[in-house]
Design a protein around this nucleic acid. Structure first.
Lengths: 226, 226
DNA sequence: ATTATATAGTGACATTTATCACACTAGCTT
DNA sequence: AAGCTAGTGTGATAAATGTCACTATATAAT
């Protein structure tokens, strides 16, 4: 009985094979040896929609590169509120996990799987080695930081200067860009992401519907405007 | 007459010498050849307090490393409001200017000199070369991005979760850390940095004074608390 | 010393967002 | 079909912030 349980956990955690074709598609500009190293040392892990991949304050154990699905990154406050910052999609990496070479560093962000996902987990000891060894990795890390930095600038632009109606519109548009006209989120989920209350979102969505921008249903709505 | 004017402009723009001692102090972990390159190719420029070093939308012409003084970085919105994000002090660099190798990229941020400053301006064509050639430069760029990313996370934490009184306290504390107990800013300047109105800041500061946290004067106040 | 100007204080009110209370409803369970 | 439940709609009110109008005052300019 116990054995079976243990084995099933083990099976779940066991890395699947990482194929070179997959890597070539996701990270087309890497050096050949780097592919080999990734194949040798990275684990292809999966997680189901909704699971938490990284929590604020948690020690970072491995770098995380998205292979399949979408991850959402949040800033978390002391009381456990979550503020949505940006998405990560296949070929992108979680910046905070890429430069944790020396000390055991703690995550300042929360990462959640939106869909079922798979990702490459690379043990941290390779981070510094690869930085030294592979130019393409080096560029990858810098590109990652640069684009995450830009995402944060966008986020700040929204909350520093805009009211909730505009922020909601921006939020929905980002959503639509990724997953199409139909947004499958409850008002409560949107409210959590924007750190406001469900009522506020309900009222604003109603107003958008009255303006003909969206069409509301239960558990989802469609973006019509433009 | 015209000649004299031209010469004075020229003199002002002319690069001063960059000494190796200076570089060693500010950037102690660089490679020797990198110091030489910086001495050969960087210009030591100066700017007076209040001047704008980089504007949103402006083409980036050179990388910027702070040598003396303090720079403030802002996010700017369409109407010209400015939202303060973080400071740059000697030994730090403006992240956005470091990875603009290929295309003519436009700045997404606004950078202003708080005090009289001097900084190294490095022509962009060296950015990619140095990334390839100098590991210490590579690490410098990554460290810069990493720490700016963390600053942005802090900023987001403030505006996403906190009310103006807490944001103001955080703002003042950052100020005090850098330039001591006496904060030499008008209420209007603080209001601009936090993207709120002067009245709001005046009232909150008054409340802080009543609580014994600060002592108000004209054009400045002292932080007393703790 | 008087005036001018930038800075600061404060009441009154508007707007935005948050909170509470409760009604309504679609879609599932039994 | 009846009942349950998560999701939604909406009024009433509170709290936070923004805006306007005006006063007061410290410092600089004359």
């Amino acid at each position: 009985m116990t054995f079976i349980t243990l084995r099933s956990i083990f099976t779940f955690e066991l890395s699947k094979m990482v194929s070179k074709e997959l890597l070539l598609k996701l990270f087309p500009d890497w050096e050949n040896d780097l592919y080999e190293e990734v194949i040798a040392h990275a684990e292809l892990r999966s997680a189901s929609a909704g699971s938490i991949l990284l929590k604020k304050g948690q020690n970072i154990k491995s770098a995380m590169l998205v292979v399949e699905g979408t991850i959402k990154l949040y800033q978390e406050d002391e009381e456990g509120s979550e503020f949505f910052m940006y998405h990560l999609t296949p070929g992108e990496a979680c910046a905070v996990t890429l430069v944790c070479n020396y000390h055991l560093e703690q995550s300042q962000v929360l990462a959640k799987a939106v869909t079922d996902i798979s990702y490459l987990a690379i043990p941290l000891e390779f981070m510094d080695k690869w930085l030294q060894k592979y130019k393409s990795w080096h560029y990858f890390v810098i590109r990652t930081y640069r684009s995450r930095y830009e995402e944060l600038l966008n986020t700040i632009n929204e909350i520093a200067f805009k009211n909730m109606d505009e922020r909601l519109e921006f939020y929905i548009k980002r959503q639509v860009e990724r997953s199409g006209k139909t947004v499958k989120l409850t008002h409560q989920e949107i409210a959590n992401d924007l750190n406001t209350s469900r009522e506020v979102i309900s009222r604003l969505l109603k107003k958008m519907e009255n303006n003909g921008w969206i069409s509301l249903s239960r558990n989802s709505f469609d973006w019509i405007k433009k």
